[in-house]
């Protein structure tokens, strides 16, 4: 196996020091203060931040992320404008970009990989680019020093799960429930289950996303997983006008819960 890149080293280091990993998600360009929000999230204890590059047809996203994507697009956000803003912004934790493959394919794989690296992005999540299709992108990404984070779902069979874990860099994204992004009252049983199946076969950090909505659920997931990704619950607060402070309060509450200090 190749040496772990910047993102993975960072996350492994924190995990190996006994810290649970907290990766909040926001949609890039969703409001005027999104860059301020990034700083506030880092300050509030995020270990890395996932930034969505908005796409017109977000197939795996529920209503909240759809709405934030639409707002970002209406503000004129493009992959280029968003990455440009990120490039001019100094952030204290690693940024992971999330986007759909068409935006990358349209601009050109090498070009996007270069723009992302220049913007300080360390890892990339492309939910509609499964293992069988990701070879070409992986070549471009690793050439630019980017980790490509692959997803494992509750429906992924064992042999396939092992193959995905072997190719995933940065961390492995465990899909917590069969469904699209969105807040859930109850944590699905599949969240711990899928995390357990992954940690059993690989040492790469494992973060669970999709359906993790509050501090109690984050703590429960992290009994098995190394960390959590929290998107819709945070983005909903921002859509409702919580602002950077409100976002930081929420992420701070997740941090304390994971640290056992609340």
């Amino acid at each position: 196996m190749s040496t772990p890149g910047r993102l993975e080293s960072h996350l492994r280091h924190r995990r190996d020091n006994g810290q649970k990993l907290l990766v909040p998600y926001i949609t890039g360009g969703m409001d005027d203060s999104w860059l301020v929000t990034l700083d506030a999230l880092a300050e509030a204890g995020a270990d890395a931040i996932e930034v969505g590059i908005p796409f017109s047809d977000p197939m795996i996203d529920g209503a909240v992320i759809q709405q934030s994507s639409l707002r970002a697009l209406e503000r004129g956000t493009t992959p280029e404008s968003l990455l440009g803003e990120l490039a001019r912004h100094e952030l204290s934790v690693p940024v992971v970009a999330m986007t759909y493959y068409n935006l990358i394919f349209r601009a050109g794989l090498d070009r996007v990989a270069g723009m992302m690296a220049e913007a300080g992005v360390t890892g990339v999540i492309i939910p509609d680019l499964p293992l069988e299709e990701f070879e070409a992108w992986e070549t471009a990404a690793s050439g630019a020093g980017l980790a490509t984070i692959l997803l494992v779902a509750p429906s992924t069979p064992d042999q396939r799960l092992a193959a995905i874990c072997e190719r995933s860099r940065g961390f492995v994204y465990a899909v917590g429930r069969m469904g699209v992004t969105g807040e859930q009252q109850e944590l699905a049983a599949s969240a711990q289950e899928v995390a357990g199946r992954i940690t059993a076969v690989c040492d790469t950090p494992v973060c669970v996303g999709i359906g993790v909505s509050n501090p109690a659920q984050a703590v429960a997931v992290c009994e098995v997983a190394d960390g959590v990704i929290v998107g819709s619950a945070l983005v909903r607060r921002l859509l409702e006008g919580a602002g950077p402070e409100g976002a930081a309060d929420f992420v701070g509450s997740l941090r304390s819960a994971l640290d056992g200090t609340n």
Binding site: M59, Y101, D128, L131, L151, A153, S155, T156, V175, M178
Partner: peptide
């Protein structure tokens, strides 16, 4: 080109 959850 589908999410992993749908590949199987």
């Amino acid at each position: 080109f589908v999410p992993e959850a749908l590949v199987p």
